[in-house]
Nucleic acid binder design. Sequence first.
DNA 1: TTTAATTATTGTATTTTTTACAATATATTC
DNA 2: GAATATATTGTAAAAAATACAATAATTAAA
Lengths: 230, 230
Amino acid sequence: MDNQFESYFKAAVSVDNVVFGFDNTGLKVLLIYRGADPYRNCWALPGDLISLDTNLLDSAEKVLQDLTGLEEIYMEQIHTFGKVDRHPYGRVFTVAYFALIKIEDYHLHPSSWAEEAAWFPISEIPELPFDHNEILAYAKEQLKSKIRRQPIGFELLPKHFTLTELQTLYESILERGFDVRNFRKKILSMDFITDTGLKQTSVTHRPAKLYKYNAKRYSNLINTGFAFDL
Amino acid sequence: MDNQFESYFKAAVSVDNVVFGFDNTGLKVLLIYRGADPYRNCWALPGDLISLDTNLLDSAEKVLQDLTGLEEIYMEQIHTFGKVDRHPYGRVFTVAYFALIKIEDYHLHPSSWAEEAAWFPISEIPELPFDHNEILAYAKEQLKSKIRRQPIGFELLPKHFTLTELQTLYESILERGFDVRNFRKKILSMDFITDTGLKQTSVTHRPAKLYKYNAKRYSNLINTGFAFDL
DNA sequence: TTTAATTATTGTATTTTTTACAATATATTC
DNA sequence: GAATATATTGTAAAAAATACAATAATTAAA
């Protein structure tokens, strides 16, 4: 072990997760109500300082699992924020992740460091502590560009979904409309969304067919040089 | 200041830069020959531990400026690597950046921590210390996906370049060929590459026209909803 | 000065993809 | 069975991508 290393500047490192959910009212973000300093008693992104014996991604997953109780959540690192004064207690680098979850699978477990957790519509995000508003903006952009090129939208939908739900999802995230016919043609022409044979129930109008995402078919396509692009 | 914070786990943080260059023989990466432990006397990505009083991006720029003497280099954060055992001396998170430079503008200044710096063809990268091979692979993928959607290729070319050079650049990075006629048609149909009126000199055959990238026109286009995609 | 060698430049027809646009079908509720 | 509500589908036109090869401009050599 090198002497110089021991005496070198050290900083705390945290992860902050931007957790997206989706229901028929639109895109949502999960915020927690902080029960500890700094910024006690305000809404913030779920995040925590991490310990030295845990890999980075494992730490991010742990923070999220503590909060939600869910496993196998789609997560992706988006950016590391490291301005000198971003944390009032000292130098803290934070690695931001975004996560996509099926909002209805979902029972929140507000964890030790949070008094409460709640879904906020993406258009009604309050002022957040630290640089969390900046992180969220970054995550939104990332989601927007990612969802056009990778089939990650399905992580936000129930296992069985209607094409209308899928279209609404894309429209919410991309903030644009699609022509119904052209959207369906394009989606179905990619071979990885399959008809389950099932239909919606308990709707007061013509029930829609239910589809599911077929990951195996998608990876087959990828191997043939196919590129998803919506 | 919070007591708990002071006693919290702290780690060192470094930046590692993947510096790409390009000349008529292809895509290159800048490596330094380490003059200090750990991994003294081997080729590695230029990187360094960072100090607590410098913003993250500023640190990355500083590492690169020390090495190259250049300013206003195109840099972009790509990923943070944080496996527990990635550094032999203790927990070190490293934030990786990629940088694009005009290889010929360029006189290397091997800096304090390096005995030497040299360009390596992308296909002849030796085994590197730490997780640097993984970082480089990640950077290559990032460059590949970025260059298709943003006009960053010009950062690698001289101010005045021929269309053949531009095509070779794209072909090297994307690892595929383009039809000469179709490539030129597409590039010129986007309005941001303009003829300088100049021609190549000192070539032993028909000299090619020299073009330049027009950033102003590009940003005008972007504002009209145009999306670059090659 | 002609010829050879080398690279630069350009156009057209075909195929594929994207876009624009509205009528009909299927379910429930009253 | 009529009203209401959403789901589903096709076609023509425009735009973009692709496939393909002949001619032009320069230097070097004969």
